[in-house]
């Protein structure tokens, strides 16, 4: 554990909490892509299956359980409890275009052709693109609430901090995992346009609005 990984994890946790609290307090999931949240639930489920087979640490188990439970809670709020506020007309990204290529790629490029390993690899590939339905929704409506922007910033920062963690581990521990690194770079790059708008607009108190 190093400072980059810890802040990355905390940033990830913060993002998930921001989203849950936002939906709960406003009793609305307007502006939130249910499809991205479904993909994240799929990502955590397929990645953390090792919960039942391998014990790593109390921290690890605790965080995995939080991520799984929070993602299902978010999906429940969007598709069940606050279904009436769900923006399904704008949430039209075709998720099969993300799920199927991620799955095929995980069959082709993995560390070991074993069920748990392929599901782990699939989750890494799918996570790298799982935010696309959300970014697509923001681009379709042309704007995002500030709280949604904070959520996206925290979620995007998490993988960026993991990249620093991997650079650190490469030098400090001679450890690296190309699958995670390449997917992490892709994931972080997808947020770059948003990061730019966040810094230039949201941090200056303006609403995130895309140029017409």
């Amino acid at each position: 554990m190093n400072i980059f990984r810890l802040t990355g994890d905390l940033s990830h946790l913060l993002a998930i909490i921001i989203l849950l609290v936002k939906i709960w307090k406003t009793r609305s999931c307007a502006g939130i892509s249910g499809k991205s949240q479904l993909l994240f639930a799929l990502v955590y489920t397929t990645r953390y299956l090792d919960l039942v087979s391998t014990y790593i640490s109390a921290y690890n188990t605790f965080m995995k359980l939080i991520f799984i439970c929070a993602s299902y809670a978010t999906v429940y709020l969007i598709y069940m409890k606050f279904k009436a506020t769900y923006d399904h007309n704008h949430d039209t990204f075709r998720v099969e275009f993300l799920i199927l290529p991620s799955f095929v790629l995980s069959l082709l490029i993995n560390h070991d052709f074993a069920v748990l390993e392929i599901l782990w690899t699939f989750s890494i590939y799918l996570e790298s693109v799982a935010i696309l339905p959300q970014l697509f929704l923001v681009s379709k409506t042309g704007e995002a609430e500030s709280i949604t922007s904070h959520y996206l910033f925290a979620l995007g920062s998490y993988r960026g901090l993991y990249l620093l963690n991997w650079i650190y581990r490469y030098y400090a521990e001679s450890h690296y995992d190309l699958i995670a690194i390449v997917a992490g770079v892709v994931q972080t790059v997808l947020y770059c346009d948003f990061f730019y708008l966040y810094v230039t607009k949201v941090l200056k108190g303006k609403k995130l609005q895309l140029p017409a």
Binding site: D9, I56, H111, Y176, A180
Partner: peptide
């Protein structure tokens, strides 16, 4: 192996 170390990450 290298990838099992990455598994302790989230």
């Amino acid at each position: 192996t290298s990838h099992s170390q990455t598994k302790d990450e989230l």
